[in-house]
Simulated assay, not measured.
Amino acid sequence: MHILVAEDDFSARLILQRMLKEYGTVDVTVDGREAVEAFRAALNAGTPYSVVCLDIMMPEMDGMEALRQMRAIEAQHGIRSTQGAKIIMTTALDDPKNVVEAFKGLCDTYLVKPIDKEALHLALVRVGVI
Rank of each mutant, 00 (worst) to 15 (best):
D94L: 00
K104H: 13
V129Y: 09
I73D: 09
V129K: 04
H121T: 12
A72E: 10
I130F: 09
P59I: 06
I87V: 14
G32D: 04
N98K: 00
I73H: 03
A85F: 13
C53V: 07
L111D: 07
T91P: 06
F39I: 03
A75G: 13
Y49K: 10
V30C: 11
R68K: 14
D8Q: 07
D31Q: 03
C53R: 02
A35W: 09
Q17Y: 00
V28H: 02
D27K: 13
R68E: 06
M61N: 08
M61R: 10
D27N: 15
N98P: 02
I88E: 11
Y23N: 12
E65F: 00
D55R: 03
T25I: 03
K86C: 11
A38T: 02
M58K: 01
D31L: 06
L43M: 11
A119K: 14
N44D: 14
V36L: 01
A92C: 02
R18Q: 13
I73Q: 12
A41F: 10
R80F: 01
H121A: 03
I87C: 05
L14Y: 13
S50C: 05
V127R: 09
E7G: 13
A123R: 09
R13G: 08
I3L: 08
M70F: 01
I56M: 03
A102F: 02
A45E: 14
L43W: 12
V51F: 12
D108S: 15
C107L: 09
K21L: 04
R18L: 09
Q76C: 05
S11T: 15
F39K: 05
R68F: 08
I88P: 09
T82P: 00
D62R: 00
V51D: 14
A102W: 01
K97R: 11
L16Y: 04
K117I: 05
D95P: 03
A85C: 09
G63E: 06
D95F: 01
P59M: 02
D31N: 15
K104L: 06
L20F: 10
A12F: 00
A6V: 07
D27Q: 12
K104R: 14
S11E: 12
T47M: 09
L120P: 13
L4E: 13
S11G: 06
V125G: 04
E37Y: 06
P48H: 15
A6Q: 03
A75T: 06
Y110S: 04
R40L: 07
G63A: 03
A41T: 10
Q76K: 11
